[in-house]
Design a binder for these strands. Sequence first.
DNA 1: GACTGGCACTCGCTACAGTCGAGTGCCAGG
DNA 2: CCTGGCACTCGACTGTAGCGAGTGCCAGTC
Lengths: 340, 340
Amino acid sequence: MGLDDRKLAVLRAIVEDYVATQEPVGSRALVERHQLGVSPATVRNDMAVLEEEGYIRQPHTSAGRVPTDRGYRLFVDRLSRVKPLSPAERRAIERFLVGAVDLDDVVHRTVRLLAQLTRQVAVVQYPSLARSSVRHLELVPISTTRLMLVMIADTGRVEQRLVEMPAPIPADDVTDLRRLVNEKLAGTRLSDTPPLVQALVDEVPTELRPAMTTLSTVLLETLVERHEERLALAGTANLTRGGLLDFQGSLRPILEALEEEVVLLKLIGETEPSTTRVLIGDENEFDNLRAASVVSTGYGPGATIVGGLGVLGPTRMDYPGTIATVRAVARYVGELLAQN
Amino acid sequence: MGLDDRKLAVLRAIVEDYVATQEPVGSRALVERHQLGVSPATVRNDMAVLEEEGYIRQPHTSAGRVPTDRGYRLFVDRLSRVKPLSPAERRAIERFLVGAVDLDDVVHRTVRLLAQLTRQVAVVQYPSLARSSVRHLELVPISTTRLMLVMIADTGRVEQRLVEMPAPIPADDVTDLRRLVNEKLAGTRLSDTPPLVQALVDEVPTELRPAMTTLSTVLLETLVERHEERLALAGTANLTRGGLLDFQGSLRPILEALEEEVVLLKLIGETEPSTTRVLIGDENEFDNLRAASVVSTGYGPGATIVGGLGVLGPTRMDYPGTIATVRAVARYVGELLAQN
DNA sequence: GACTGGCACTCGCTACAGTCGAGTGCCAGG
DNA sequence: CCTGGCACTCGACTGTAGCGAGTGCCAGTC
């Protein structure tokens, strides 16, 4: 694989120009805009090699070259440095995020901020319950047979759920139940709760047994199975930038994918600690998103990761800039969470 | 304004055909597909009148006719009967909505259901806080200087908010505060709370005064000013049906409008009790949505209205069917809420 | 052996002319 | 008041031609 330095420089130049102009780039334009020190003919030879290796391609026989997904991949891995943020961007981030009063508030501000800075679709995962601990469980009587269960996690997440009791339940019993579940569960990681919940049912005094059984079912459902993850989304209008050239004419598959929580979670949900992930075109597993790229990373207070965030845009995107922004936003959000 | 019965029939036929085929409809096609009992030439004369009155127009000199916003308006007001739902649709609604465990769950299921049935963009407003009463206020200590305030409304809405106290606050004081705010506020309509909250600050024992002052600020902010309203949205991918013909080529303005909560609230937020509202094209006040129509209605348990829901689509939409679906869904949701 | 200038070739894009046909407006007659 | 007939309009489509950006290849140079 004879990719010498100049060929790499040519590839880099092609990616940069194509991202900037949205038009196939030819050999003449390339030597004019970059100091390559060689003639167009030489560049053409290099291009032929790059094409053979699958890094670029020609839309039509007599057009300029366009990077392939593989070309972007090489560019991201070896040819680009992460762009440092401008002071203006840093300031924008801070200004946007200070004054958040709430986890909800933080998440919504973050997702709007990301969409605005990157001019793409932004997705933020709420802190994952699986990675949170129970801070407090509250039981609020709604009627004689109904309780509202409210769980507050250390990450700031609050989940609530209505519990339909099998029989009317006296106020004192509610107090007892509240005390019992908190004694047992407060402070534990949510992923560790299922056996503890089971134990609760077994240990509880007989007169509370039926109530606790119902409660435990709902607990398990709410805390572990259902809604486990939540997402915020913003900037879908950015999909229409660049006319219909990106996304080969139809936003449909993209919009469909964006409505599927499961898909988004797979894309931006955190995985390995703190690595920034870049999925280019068909590298991601969803057919609907073959024309899109995703840049995502984990965030969390300090070194721990509690959730993921990222952006989705055309494969033709400014990777260095986007990566830098995503990372910076994630770091700021982490700091914000650490303060609480 | 000589709009005799036949001219109205012609208009109705034009609307129906255009909605079905998405193509300008000519006089010959019209007499073929509908039993008008007259010749194309006669229809042409009627069309000329309808055009003069502004109900239809020609995209180009020698094309068929297309309804104008005004034409749709007349059609909706006088020429269409609300289509009764098919049994299949009724069953779909019931199947979709039973098993909802939660207000969140109800709202999400509803919005997806609406999007699916109408094949358009659906919007559901959470029950408005302004139209809810306080059921219970809970104060949960998070740390020595932090409380989590949780408000549960009779409509099932739950709002929470972190409260930063000016000084460490002992557990007993939290209990007292909880009792005081509940005594004063539980059962009152949220719109009536501001003076009561003020009174609370004045009446409270001196040692609780600073804590209560902070709390009251947050209460007012959370319950009345901020987040007042919430929305759920689904079916944006449906905007891409009908290619780029609807929405004159660009989804951009629509997508932008859909990201603005304020806009959506104005569109589907409840107003007069239980009337179904239909806003056609430029009848709505937002420039971004001149190419769209909105069908919305209020919903709520029994006869009261607590929120709005509706759909947004191209002006070229099946109004009778959409109106029927929106109404039916709203009624089912109302019943569901009444049960809780 | 690597680079370069030159040249023939490809092919998409635009402009233009010509044809077709759907649809109209109008008019004279029933 | 309705109808059939007719001339007219104009968008959609087709085919042709010229232009220009860009390529691949080759022979010549350092």
